[in-house]
Amino acid sequence: MNVSPEPEAVVPKQRNQFDFAWWWDRVGILMVLILLIVLMSIFAPNFNRVDNLLNIARSISVNAILAAGLTFVILTGGIDLSVGSIVAVSGVVAVIAAIAGVPAPVAVVIGMAVGGACGLVNGVLIAYLALAPFIVTLGTMTFLRGLAYTITNGQPIVSSDLNFKDLGNGYLLGIPVPVIAMGAVFLVAWFVLERTRYGRHVYAVGGNAQAARLAGVQVNRIILSVYVVAGICAGLAGVIFAARVISAQPTAGTGYELDAIAAVVLGGTSLVGGRGRIVGTLIGAVILGVLTTGLILLNVQFFTQLLIKGVVIILAVAIDSLKQRPELLSVLFGRGQGPSKS
């Protein structure tokens, strides 16, 4: 008589085992931010001044809004390299609409709609034609940058009386309007990801798309939607940027996609998808903003700033790798045991 083998017992994780992923997401990233603020307060002149802190918050807003949208994409295991170019195109279209006499709220909505349309194109190509996100968004990044140059004929379009300029330069109750917009975006993103069925589906698709499909999740629709979300956020960021400089700049957003991706990964969202927190993304964006402003106040040369930012991006990817492969920590620090020999 054949006896079926007993199932293997599941060995629970030891309580004293160091969980780097949990520690970094909950504690580590916040400690890095606090340490960075302390260092800049000590060494960077005038860093603690209220007007400087408000300027830091305002400068963070564009990258943070981009990162919020990218969090949705990266949670599904995707990537979007086109958001920087969407910033340019959306800002250009919004400024042209405003100059043509369109009311300010409508011009802002038009800019966001342009961003959403660009995200829709990315989503259709990736979700329904099964094209690689990296290649698709690399192509749309180049195309949209060329489109921004074509629309403006390669020259900035300046409007000193831009009707939505307060969106980039105004204050409400002493708080910069871009900071309020950033806070609203993150509040909505937090609610959607943490408190809605749609948010659970986003995490499910990133964790295991095939299992999510078998569970009844419309995987293609979710993938399509996250690129639209990223496009809308990039559109809003583009309108805010245009309002800040009171012009349409075809060069706007150049390189912003890298800063946004770095903020997302620094904040604890895994590049392979399925794991991350929108609050962490905000902290990651603040870290990059504080670092950039502090280096400027310290009179660090621009090319040296690029070197430092490059190191930060590499560290962000390395941290993500450590989170996905805890056995590396065991090798590095001598924790845990090697494979058992039979």
Rank of each mutant, 00 (worst) to 15 (best):
E6N: 10
E8W: 00
R15T: 14
N16I: 13
F18G: 09
F18A: 10
I29S: 01
L30H: 13
L39M: 14
N46F: 13
R49P: 09
R49Y: 14
L54G: 07
A64G: 10
L66F: 06
I74C: 05
S82C: 10
S85V: 07
I86F: 08
V87P: 00
A94W: 03
I99V: 14
G101D: 10
V108C: 00
V109D: 05
A117H: 06
G119A: 10
T137P: 03
T142R: 01
L147C: 07
L147H: 05
I151E: 07
Q155L: 07
P156V: 09
S159D: 15
N163H: 09
K165Q: 14
G168M: 02
G168C: 06
L172D: 06
L173D: 04
I175Y: 07
V177R: 05
G183M: 13
A184R: 04
F186C: 06
E194M: 12
Y198F: 15
V202P: 00
A209E: 08
R213V: 00
L214C: 00
L214E: 09
L214I: 11
A215N: 13
N220P: 09
I223L: 10
A230H: 07
C233K: 03
A234H: 03
G238I: 02
V245H: 09
P250S: 11
G273T: 04
G274V: 06
R275C: 09
T281R: 02
I287Y: 04
V290W: 01
I296Q: 13
N299Y: 13
Q301E: 15
F302V: 14
T304S: 13
T304Q: 15
Q305C: 08
L307K: 11
V311K: 09
V312H: 00
I313N: 03
V317I: 14
A318L: 15
I319L: 10
D320Y: 03
D320Q: 05
Q324N: 11
Q324T: 12
L329K: 03
G336C: 11
